[in-house]
Nucleic acid binder design. Sequence first.
RNA 1: GCCCUCGUAGCUCAGUGGAUAGAGCAGUUCCCUUCUAAGGAAAAGGUCGGGGGUUCAACUCCCUCCGAGGGCGCCA
Length: 663
Amino acid sequence: MQNLQHSISIKLIELVKREYSLDIDYETAVLEKPKKEEWGDLASTVALKISSKAGHSPADIAKKLCFLLNNEEFTFTFNDVVYPIFEKIDFAFPGFINFKFSVPYLLNYALELSSKGLNVKDQKRPNISLKIALEHSNVNPNKAAHVGHLRNACIGQFIERVYEKMGHDVNVQYYEDDLGVQVSTSLMGTMELKDINPSDYEKFDHYAWDVYAKMESLIVQDENLQKKREHLMQRLEDSKDEISVEQSKLADRILKDQLVTFGKLDFDYDVIIREKDIVSLGLWNRAFEKLKTNPNVYLATSGPSKGCWMINMSGDKNEDAGSLISDSENQEEISVQEPLGGGRVIEEDKVIVRSNGVPTYTGKDIAYHMWKYGLLGLDFYYRELDIGTQKKILWTTSSEESDISKDVSFSKNDYVIDVIDVKQTYAIDVVRASLSYLGYTSEAENMTHVNYGFVYLSPKTAEKMGIDTSDGKTQYAMSGRKGWGIKVDDLIEMVDSKLRAEYGDFKNVNDVRNGAIKFEMLRYNTFQDIVFDLDAALSLNGFSGPYIQYTHARTFSILEKGAFQEIDFYSLPTSLHEREVAVLAQLAKFSSVVLEAAYEFAPNNLCNYLFELAQKYNTFYNELPILSSPQEEKKVRMAITESVKAVITEGLFLIGITAPNRM
RNA sequence: GCCCUCGUAGCUCAGUGGAUAGAGCAGUUCCCUUCUAAGGAAAAGGUCGGGGGUUCAACUCCCUCCGAGGGCGCCA
C-alpha cells in the first residue's frame, strides 16, 4: 500500500516534468484520501496545485494526467496471473484525479491481511531496529492511580505496541518518584494520622490516597509541620537513613497495589526506575558534575533563588554550550558565576538544586535522561519484581550490589519517548535544554515528549465525587493533594457492575470492561484536555470499544457456522455490491492509518478507523445475507468477514484491547 | 505581564489548504418466526465564536477582537 502510493507519486512527478517542464516536490505529488468513498480510494490534487505555473486550467491538466496514467501499467500478480490494480483513474472538477481500486486488488489485499496480518515498516527509519525507552504511567508511590494516570498508561501502551509492530525494540519504564515533597507528606501521614487505618481499606493504595489528602490539608496550615516535612525530605535522600528505609517499604507497598490495578487492565512494564537509586548509585552526582561546569548552569548568589543551582531557560543561551569541561581544577570558579547577561530575569530559570542541597525532581530527571542514553557511564543494578500482575518479566532498579544482573540493562537507548501530561512541558524542556547544553544535541532531538491533555471532571461527575461545584465551572481538575479524583479501581468496579446489570454475568466481562475503559481514554485527540464524565464513560453503545468488540464477536459467530473457502479469482463477479466494496476499501486503508497514528502519536486515528470499519461491516451485514447467499458470493462475503475479524483483532490489540469471540 | 491550547449540530467530539463540513449521544419514525438488536435504516438538527487578510481554493494559514482553560514553583 505504502509502496504503491509512493510509486504513483513518483510517476506523477515524472509526468508533470515531461508534460509541463515543471519540477514539483514530493509533497505536491503526495496522494490523499478522498473525503467520500464514491470518489475513489486515492486522490491527487497535483493539477490544482500546478495549474497557475503550468498555464493550463486544472481540469485540462487533470484530464491529461488521467489519460497518461491510464496508459501506465499498475498491476499485481496473484497465482501467476496479472491483474490491474485500479478499476479506473478519472478526473473530477475542478481538477481532482481519483483512483479507484479494482475488485481483485481489494480482495487480494483483504486476503493477505487475514492470512499474514498487518505488515507495517517504519518508513522513516527503514531496516533499523531502534532501542526505545518509553516512559509512562509514573504514578507517584503515595496514592492510588486515578483516571488521569489511566489516560497516560493507555497512550503509552498504544505507543509501545505500535512501535514494536514497526520493528523497534521498546522497553517500558515506570518511573517511581520515591523522593521529594509528595512522598514525605505521605510518610508523615502514616506516622501521625492515627484515625485513618489500613485495615479499613480493601487496598493499601486507597488508604494512602486518604492519608495523603488529609496530611496535606494539615501541613498547608501549619508551619511547624512544613518544617518537619522538609527535614524528612532531606533524610530521605540518604538511602541508608532508617527513615528512608521505612519510606521505601511504604512506597513498595503502594507501588505493588498500583501494579495490581494496572494489571487488571493488561498493562505491562519492563522496569521500575526508582528515583532513590538515581541518587544512591551516584547517577545524580555524575550528572551534576557535568552540569556544574557548563556555562548555562550557575549558582544563584542573589535574588529569590539565592543559594540554588539554576539552569538557564530564559532563551539567552550561552555560546559556550556544549563544551564539556571535565576535571577542571578551576571548577568552583567556573561554576560559581553570576547569571548570564547581568540584569537577566533569573526567575525564568529553573532550579535544579534547592538551597538546602537537595536536587529537585527536574534535576534528577536530567540525570535519568542522561542515563537513558547511556551518557553517564553508570548503570543501575536490577532485580526481578514478581508480583504476578503481568505477562512480561518485570525488573526494578536496585542499589544492592548483590542484585547485579549482567543480562539486563535498560540504558543506552537510541530513542526516548516520554508520555507526560501537557502541564509538565516546561520541565521536559529543561531536560532537553540540558542535554543540548552538554553537547548532546542528537539525544535532545531524539527525545519526544508525548504531551497529552489533562483529564478534568465534568461538573456532574465532580459533584458525585463530593467536590463543591457551586462556583459553576465547566470542568474540575483532579487533585491528589485534595483527594479529588476517580480512582481506576473504582471505575473498573462501576463498569463491571453496569455490564452485569445489563447483560448478566458473562465470561468475557473483563475484556469488554477493558474495551470500554481504554477506548474511552483514547478516542479523543491526544493533545487535548478531556472532560471526563462518568455517564459517557460507562456508555457501551455507538462510538465505543464494546461496539467494535461486538462486531468482532459477530464475525466470529458467522465464521464458526460456515467454513472459509478459497476464492477463485477467475470467476469473480466484475463488480461487487457497494456494501462489500465499502468494507474492502476500508480494509485497504489499515496500514496507512496505523503508520499515521504511530508517527503522530495519535491513537484516536486508529479508534476512528476501527469504528468506521465496524460500522461499514454492520451495514453490510444487515443488508446482505452471508451464509445463505449463492456459492460465489458466499465465498467473497466470508473472505470479507474473515479479514474484518483479523483487522479488528489486530487494531484493537494496538490500542490495548482484546477481542473476545463471544459477548 | 510573557507564553501555550481550545471555541464546529442541544451535548461529547472528528475534520493537519481542496469536492455538498461528518460521527456518536439525546430526541422523532421504522426493522428481530431470517447469520449475535451491545445491531441496522430514515428524517431532523450548522452564521465552523465575531471581524479583517493571504489564496484558483480557508473550519484549516496570518492578524485582530471576544470567550474558556493551562504553563511561567526551592511541587511534580
